[in-house]
Amino acid sequence: MNHRELRDSPVLTVIGEALVDIIRDPRQPGSQAHPGGSPLNVAVGAARLGLGTRLVTHYADDLHGRMLEEHLKSNGVAVLKGGTAPTSTATATLGLDRAATYVFDISWDIEGASITAAARDSTHVHTGSIAAMLAPGDRSTLAFVEATRERATISYDPNCRPAISPDADSARAQVERFVAASDIVKASDEDLLWLYPDSTPERALAAWLQLGPALVALTRGAAGPVLLTRQGRVEMAAESVTVADTVGAGDSFMSGLISGLAQLGALGRGGRQRLHSLTLDELKALSAYANSAAAITCSRPGANPPDSAELGLLF
C-alpha cells in the first residue's frame, strides 16, 4: 500500500482532547505554546503519515482555539467540533533530563451530533488519555467506541494523568473497560506502574491481552518498546537520538503503529482477522516503524511527529 492509497483509504477517526501545551524550559526565559493533547497528536501524526484522518474534539473560538484550528487544518486533519467549554491548556515543565511534567487547566465534554456523524463511516477509531477518563465526556467517548466496534477496529492509549484522575482504583476500572473494547492497546511503563503498583509492566500488559485485544504495546522510554500478541513477543531498544524533549513521543509511536497496521491491511472490520494473525516478522517491522516515529519526535522540540517522507513505508 502506497501513501496515495493510504490517503484514499477509509477514515481513521480519533476522538479526544485538543489543547495547547505551554512549554516552560528552566534553561530559557518565558514559555512557548504548541498545539497538543494526546488524541490531537495522534491524529496529526497519522495524517502526516498518509492516513485520511479526522478528529472529534472541542475547543473555543479564542486565541488558543484558533491556533488548534490552524494546526489541524494545515496538517490535513478534518475536525468535527462539539462542546462549549473553553480551550484547554497543559503547562509542561521540562526537567534536567528533558522529560516533561504537566499541570492541566482542562475540561472534556462532547456533543452527541458530532459523535453520531463520525460513527457512520469510521474504519478505525482511536481514543485515550483525558477523553477516556474525565467526566462527563468519558461516557460519550465510551459510547462512541461501543457504537463503532462492529464496523471498525479500535485502538486505545490510556496515557494516564494522575493530576486529573488521582484515584488509581477508579482509573484502573475505567482503563480496563476501554482495554476490553479495543483491538490495539498501547501504554507506557509509567502508566502501568501507576495503575498496577504490585505488578510489573509486562505482567500487566499480558493480563490486558487476556481482556480481548489482538495486540498490546509497551513503551519504555530509552529502554525501547515491547509488542505482544497471542502468537509472539517482540522487544527492541530505543533508537539513539539527541533528545530535544519527550513531548508527544508516545503519541508518535501510536500513530506510527496505526499507520503500519493500515499498510498491512489489518484495520477495519475486514482487517480484524489479519490483525489477529500478525507474524513475528510483521511485529518486528511494526515495532521498528513506530519506534522510529517516536525517535524523530524526540529529536525536535514539542509534539512534532514525522511525515511520510521522513519515515517512509513499513516495508
Rank of each mutant, 00 (worst) to 15 (best):
V103F: 11
A303H: 03
F315G: 12
R300I: 14
H124Q: 05
H34T: 04
D198K: 12
L228T: 03
R7N: 10
P158S: 07
A18R: 02
R98A: 12
D21S: 00
G302R: 01
Q210R: 01
G76E: 09
E239Y: 08
T141V: 13
I184Y: 09
H126K: 06
V79H: 07
L218G: 01
V185S: 15
R120G: 04
W108H: 05
T89A: 14
H58F: 03
T153M: 12
A168M: 10
L313N: 06
A131S: 14
E310R: 01
R4I: 14
S114A: 15
A100H: 11
I22C: 14
V42E: 12
D191T: 01
L134K: 15
V103I: 15
T53K: 01
P162A: 03
F253R: 00
I110R: 02
P306R: 03
T148A: 09
K73R: 10
P136W: 13
S114F: 11
E111N: 09
S240R: 08
A309C: 04
L209E: 08
G112H: 04
R7G: 06
R172L: 14
S277I: 14
H64N: 15
S240N: 12
S107Q: 05
G250C: 10
K186T: 15
W208D: 01
H71K: 00
G95T: 11
E282F: 08
G250Y: 09
D191H: 00
T229H: 12
I164W: 14
L264R: 02
P26W: 06
P213H: 06
T57E: 13
A238I: 07
D62R: 01
L55R: 04
T93Q: 13
A113K: 13
F104V: 08
A262T: 14
I130W: 05
D191R: 00
